[in-house]
Simulated assay, not measured.
Amino acid sequence: MEKQNYEKKAYETMKEKILNGQLRTGDRVPENTIAKELGISRTPVRRALVMLETEGFLTIESNRGAFVCESKVTVGKFIEMLEMLEVLTIKTMDKIETKGISFDPQHLYRRLSVMEGHLKTENSNGFVEEGWQTVFDFIAYMGNSYADIAVRKMGIDFLTKAPKEIILIPFHNGAYLIEQFLRMNELLRMKNFDKAETIVRELVNYFIIKTFR
């Protein structure tokens, strides 16, 4: 096997361990263990570590080794985002119901129409960005500045720090996502809040399962 292939294998192996949570934020990357596991020398492993540092997955400290960064959106972090969005979305629905807040379904329909256009033209970046804006617009109904800031930060982190494999999960399941958003929107228009909340929980569970496949 060529040296370049050794580096690629080491890179892919360590990246997968980070993304699937085997190596967590703050963990020291076991350089020797990785080399033994792959049956290669430490040199290509070190080169792969530098590549991962460049991409923001790791920090390499002199005389201490390489450590997993918290700046990257790993699989575990993405699932935390999904769970937080579930809580905030349901709280927003509760606020709309209990406070009698006027809900405008047409605004979200327009957002979903834009998402549908991006899906048809295979514009993954546009689709994902519009999806986050759709979520942000809905959470704004809660009228809570802390929730607004939290969702805005999650969106920025996802779009700027998540690896491509994670960013593309919503896009690859775009037709289903739009379908569920439309169902939720219609249920809210009809003031059927219980069923709308069920849609949210099912949607989050669906994406958690898809993340591990």
Rank of each mutant, 00 (worst) to 15 (best):
R111C: 13
T43M: 00
K95G: 01
S71M: 05
F103L: 03
R46S: 15
N63I: 13
E97H: 07
V68C: 04
T33L: 01
G65D: 08
L112G: 06
L112C: 10
L88A: 11
L82I: 08
G76M: 04
T33D: 04
H107A: 11
N32W: 04
V73A: 01
D94Q: 11
Y109Q: 12
R110F: 07
L112F: 04
R111H: 15
E83F: 00
N32S: 15
P44S: 10
L85Q: 12
M84N: 13
E83P: 06
P30N: 06
I79M: 05
V73E: 00
T54W: 01
L108V: 13
K91G: 09
L38F: 06
M51P: 01
A35Y: 09
E80C: 02
E61R: 07
K91C: 06
N63M: 04
G56M: 06
E83S: 08
I60R: 01
K91A: 11
G56C: 11
N32A: 15
T74Y: 05
Y109D: 14
L38S: 06
N63W: 08
L49V: 14
G39K: 04
T92K: 01
E97N: 10
F78E: 06
L49P: 08
T74F: 05
E37Q: 14
M84C: 09
G65V: 12
P105K: 03
F78Y: 15
I60S: 10
V45W: 07
A35G: 09
K77G: 06
F103W: 01
S71C: 11
T59H: 02
F67K: 06
S41W: 00
R64G: 10
M81Q: 12
E31L: 14
G39W: 02
Q106D: 12
F57C: 11
S41D: 11
H107V: 15
H107S: 10
E31M: 12
M93V: 12
T33S: 07
R28D: 03
D94H: 03
D104M: 02
Y109I: 14
R47W: 09
G76D: 11
T59G: 04
R42E: 15
I96R: 07
V50D: 10
P105Y: 03
P105V: 09
H107W: 05
S102M: 05
